[in-house]
């Protein structure tokens, strides 16, 4: 009982801190916090796919797809912000389900390679369709909420809160059982009645939706992007490392990983240019070799059946 009450106090404190943070800090920290929250969304979204044993590089593609769809509909079709986000999400759902079906039988590394190829094809398409996307010159949108960082913070915190709710649901419902079973063996899971196709597609689609939302937020927040930035593999990699290092298959892990790594990154960025990506590489290697369960570890006991 004691352990639980402590946990709830910590969660409540974190939530309160998250809400009041922009009001007690300056612009620089607000900006940093916004990016951290965006990465937390991405890290969680990557973890959603990982839970169904999908090592996906597709979230890079969906991040870019979200960014470009919402920017283009906002600019060229004069959609209001919420509608441009909605269209981006809808398009993402369609693409994710199509890609999911196409790669249904691919497992492990084969799926990873295919998802990487998908992201890179999207990059080339963005570069090669300058009439729509602005090509290599990129695309610019007016600043979000007139540049009021507090509102931006509120929006991304809202998106993260949604992702956390989804994640908690996945962790505590029948999804958790299905995912755990599929991670050991999809065949055995299916013989025991798990509709593996459905769970695989839903985890992949959920992952895509939140990557897309992060991307759509990103472009409006930074007001400009180019294909090499929106489809930059480094963004995907960073969120992957955050999830792995924080602890896979959990809600706290990816969020914690995002916070820790973003702080390290910011420190590194100031001290050694380029250095922070080296750190990401090293942390990924070290994490896999020495800390396979991440910072939080897999705490099966918290979940289902208790």
């Amino acid at each position: 009982m004691k352990k639980y009450s402590l946990k709830y106090i910590l969660v409540a404190a974190a939530a309160i801190l998250a809400v009041i943070f922009p009001f007690i800090t300056g612009e620089y920290y607000r900006h940093l916090a916004i990016l951290t929250l965006m990465y937390a969304v991405l890290a969680l979204s990557w973890d959603f796919a990982a839970r169904a044993e999908l090592v996906s590089f597709a979230h890079t593609g969906f991040f870019g797809l979200g960014a470009y769809t919402s920017a283009v509909t906002f600019l060229k079709l004069d959609f209001p912000l919420y509608l441009s986000f909605t269209v981006a999400v809808l398009l993402t759902i369609v693409v994710a389900i199509a890609l999911g079906y196409l790669t249904l039988r691919l497992s492990g590394i084969y799926f990873a390679i295919a998802s990487l190829a998908f992201s890179e094809v999207l990059l080339v398409v963005a570069l090669q369709l300058p009439k729509v996307t602005g090509g290599a010159m990129g695309i610019s949108v007016p600043s979000l909420f007139g540049g009021m960082r507090v509102y931006c913070y509120g929006l991304i915190l809202g998106i993260l809160a949604l992702a956390v709710v989804v994640s908690l649901y996945l962790e505590r419902s029948h999804f958790h059982l299905a995912f755990s079973a599929m991670r050991t063996s999809p065949s055995v899971a299916s013989v025991l009645g798990v509709n593996t196709v459905r769970y695989r597609l839903s985890s992949f689609t959920l992952s895509a939706i939140f990557s897309c939302l992060a991307g759509a937020f990103y472009v409006h927040y930074t007001t400009t992007t180019i294909p090499y930035e929106a489809f930059n593999l480094n963004i995907g990699v960073a969120s992957m490392v955050m999830a792995v290092l924080g602890g896979l298959y959990s809600t706290v892990g990816p969020v914690l990983g995002a916070i820790v790594l973003k702080i390290i990154e910011e420190y590194m960025r100031v001290t050694i240019p380029y250095g922070y990506m080296i750190i990401y590489g090293l942390l990924l290697v070290a994490g896999i070799l020495f800390l396979p369960k991440g910072l939080v570890g897999v705490q099966n006991k918290w979940k289902f059946l208790k």
Binding site: H174, A181, S185, V188, A189, G193, N300, L305
Partner: peptide
């Protein structure tokens, strides 16, 4: 499986991330 065909495997293939109870719960739920 839903129609009523159940099977075991020659080489035991338990879901290693789940407890014994969790293993059975997968079958019970799905």
């Amino acid at each position: 499986c839903h129609m009523g065909i159940g099977r075991t495997f020659q080489i035991c293939q338990p879901f290693k991330e789940l407890t014994v109870l969790g293993n059975v719960a997968v079958a019970a739920v799905f």
